[in-house]
């Protein structure tokens, strides 16, 4: 998952980013409202975590502008303001979820996974593709009913493909969802990861769409 994290607190922002990265998310941490609004407009994220009190531009304004511009990016508001009026105002502005500080990282991860899953059009938490089963809330993969062991990078690629099931993910999108910033790609190039995944789940499930990207499909497997 590629997450836009908008949080101006110099301690909390990096702490959340670190925790989310441990949960296999790719996180862009932004501490300024204007920059955040711009990134949300131009980059492709799976979800945004938005603090309400921001320098430059406050969270509700950013959200209102995104929604007015037709951006469907799932947004979770993360705020210290825990009054019901604040929550109502957040939802009115177009928020998809609301979490008050302090919170547990597990809860934030769960809520983000649910947001991304629903945004991808999956109502159920269990996503099936041929012999492959993905528990979207816990992040567990099963192949033919047995747990599938994956490295972090493999998991990032396969979960993105699973959520986008049957749809093509462009190569660039996939890269952005897999690599955190200036991470050393080196021997772990996307092609290498795809190759390793094909060895684990069978060569036919991941289809290369020439000139565009990849897609996960059960059609070829059956």
């Amino acid at each position: 998952m590629r997450i836009l994290l908008v949080e101006d607190d110099p301690d909390l922002g990096p702490a959340i980013a670190k925790a989310l990265r441990q949960e296999q998310c790719v996180v862009d941490l932004i501490a300024d409202g204007v920059d955040a609004a711009h990134l949300g407009d131009t980059e492709r994220y799976d979800a945004a975590v938005l603090d309400l009190g921001m320098p430059g531009k406050d969270g509700v304004t950013i959200l209102t502008e995104w929604r007015a511009a037709g951006r469907t990016l799932p947004v979770l508001i993360l705020t210290a303001r825990d009054g019901w009026s604040d929550k109502v105002a957040g939802f009115r502005a177009g928020a998809d979820d609301f979490l008050t500080k302090p919170f547990r990282i597990e809860e934030l991860t769960m809520r983000l996974r649910a947001l991304v899953r629903r945004a991808a059009g999956h109502a159920a938490t269990r996503i099936v593709c041929g012999p492959l089963v993905f528990e979207a809330q816990t992040g567990q993969f099963e192949l033919d009913g047995l747990p599938l062991r994956l490295t972090a990078l493999e998991w990032r690629v396969l979960s993105a493909l699973m959520l986008a099931k049957e749809a093509v993910i462009e190569r660039l999108d996939l890269l952005e969802r897999v690599y955190q910033g200036d991470a050393d790609v080196g021997s772990n190039s996307l092609e290498v990861i795809i190759g390793r995944l094909r060895k684990k789940i069978g060569a036919t499930l991941i289809e290369t769409v020439r000139g565009r990207g990849y897609r996960l499909t059960a059609g070829a497997a059956t």
Partner: peptide, 20 residues
């Protein structure tokens, strides 16, 4: 009251994450 909440909750949230 709301400002006090905001001021206190952000560092508490940081502590909560780091002490998970």
């Amino acid at each position: 009251a709301a400002n006090l909440a905001h001021a206190l909750k952000t560092p508490v949230a940081t502590l909560a994450l780091e002490l998970a």
